[in-house]
Write a protein that binds this DNA or RNA. Sequence first.
DNA 1: CACTAACCGAGACGGTACGTCCAGTCTTATA
DNA 2: TATAAGACTGGACGTACCGTCTCGGTTAGTG
Lengths: 185, 185, 185, 185
Amino acid sequence: MARPRNTDSDAAILTAAAETLQRDGYDGLIVDELARAVGVAKTTVYRRWPTKNHLVVSVIAAWQGEVAVPDSGDTEADLVAIVTGMARALDPASMRRLVAELAAASARDADLRAQVELLWNARRAATAAILARGVADGTLRDDLDVEIAMDQLAGAVYYRVLITGAVLNDDFARTLVRSLLAGAR
Amino acid sequence: MARPRNTDSDAAILTAAAETLQRDGYDGLIVDELARAVGVAKTTVYRRWPTKNHLVVSVIAAWQGEVAVPDSGDTEADLVAIVTGMARALDPASMRRLVAELAAASARDADLRAQVELLWNARRAATAAILARGVADGTLRDDLDVEIAMDQLAGAVYYRVLITGAVLNDDFARTLVRSLLAGAR
Amino acid sequence: MARPRNTDSDAAILTAAAETLQRDGYDGLIVDELARAVGVAKTTVYRRWPTKNHLVVSVIAAWQGEVAVPDSGDTEADLVAIVTGMARALDPASMRRLVAELAAASARDADLRAQVELLWNARRAATAAILARGVADGTLRDDLDVEIAMDQLAGAVYYRVLITGAVLNDDFARTLVRSLLAGAR
Amino acid sequence: MARPRNTDSDAAILTAAAETLQRDGYDGLIVDELARAVGVAKTTVYRRWPTKNHLVVSVIAAWQGEVAVPDSGDTEADLVAIVTGMARALDPASMRRLVAELAAASARDADLRAQVELLWNARRAATAAILARGVADGTLRDDLDVEIAMDQLAGAVYYRVLITGAVLNDDFARTLVRSLLAGAR
DNA sequence: CACTAACCGAGACGGTACGTCCAGTCTTATA
DNA sequence: TATAAGACTGGACGTACCGTCTCGGTTAGTG
């Protein structure tokens, strides 16, 4: 009944924020400037996201949102595909910073944590689907602990992003998946 | 010739900063408050550390602890021992907070990153040693990628700490190690 | 053919605005809140009054009350009567608040000033009538400057209301009139 | 012991604020702009005055501060002098607006009221001094109610400023004083 | 033993961003 | 048309915190 929110504004804000975040990092994103750049009042931003942090979460959510579930019939290839996708998305330095800020922010604020978890879950679900399919078609062990397997895959990626800072290239993704499938013994 | 610095102040500031950092996170550490709490002038803080970041580096550097390398002759048992140690250490909410802050701090500042890496390296080296021993005595595959293996072990732990928030108990540690050794296929 | 305006809304808005204006002052009257309190859309308010100021003008116009002109034949007694009336009316804290707001509103906006002056003029005319009668019947000096005399009477009252905050009781009214009539020399 | 406040800043801020107030009125005074114009941080303004309102009070206080007590030996001349001073100071439209805002603001806020009263008291004391001298040297009646007399003088001026909007010229001041001294009967 | 350089507390200062508040306008669906 | 609902622009406000600065006063160690 009331005037509906202008969804174009949502998109424009997210796009501009994404760009700025990539270029200038978290502190480089200034709400006042953002609003001016988009041609929108600051209030319009704050009506949608109560906090700069919340906005940043949305930005990343939008990036993550484009996760497709690969389904080639070959479990290994699918796993490589999804891990490669993660690796490519998270490798750039600006992305690493963002993820780190997000992890810290969600450790501080429960409200934010809920948002952030939704965000990771997109890829998590895709990975789980592939693994489940592998178990179903006999490619993977019957008693495979899917949770642990995902921890090992995604964990390895985030570990490099957040802790060691090591590179994330396609080779890494391939080796990681192979290592998971092969066992160390 | 001139009046010497009061070394008690150094210690008191570091201690208070460490406590606050763990409790309230990076943004919760406010130099003004810190100084007042310690009973010291803000100048005294800035005379020692030119920046809040530099102070945080010092705090983190002081957190270095030695990690024992378990050596029972049984590689699996040793891995379980070290992963269990990590899991127990990182499980408490306050530790998760802290790790998240450190990850974010690393991302913001290169100096900080160097310090923080030293922190993680203690455990990292221990894990690497166990894996190397396993390869040497034939328990593990010759062509094992030790880096990737560590990413999978430590990564899984940090992933739960920073991203999913899932529990870290001894069971998890055991299953994780077993999963690494067994392979998924 | 078209839907007619709801005249109940006019009344309800004016009443609520009057109350709020008296209680919380000009800045305390917030159009959004007013509309919500009355159960009316903001549009409904703005369709009737183009501006908050215009609304306030209407509120004030509605406050017009008639002031009786005392006529006992005794000029001093009549003056005391009318000044006492003013003093009693303006003494309460809420009235002082209101008068102050009206004075400020007058200063901000010419339209408002016109309305507010109508308000004051009721009593002003009554006082002028009494003074004129006094001059006519020889009780007061022929060359009395009626304007100035009114400034001295009403001014003293408003001065206490707006500037000094001093009490306004019947004694004050009596002394004031006597002082005017007697001269200081 | 600490770094002392820069009193030049106080003066510069007051001067600039005064000028802007005169030119652009209350709403035209924007703290951000003021600070920039003076070459001072906004915090420096807010350290001295908790609110824009408080600053405005100070500005007017500074204007009023320059009230000299005339002492020519002639009570009537002295009264005319002080009333003329008031009239001249308060006559300009910008000043009328300020006084009105101040009256309203002090009706709203007790803290502010205290400040504002101090302000008016400067002139009030001067007037009282003249009247007391007149009583002492026999120019004025022994039983003169000084309070009431001041209410009549200052009141007439403020009445015109705040209520009727009538002009305040030197003639008015002279007639007013004469009227007070002469009596109406 | 006086001198002197660095230290210390207190807190002012410039600068920058944040999130909030309100007025007045606009848009949609409904009556 | 009028209305409820509420989104929107625009602009100021007051707050928070960082890192720098300027005081008056203190405290070694040197000459």
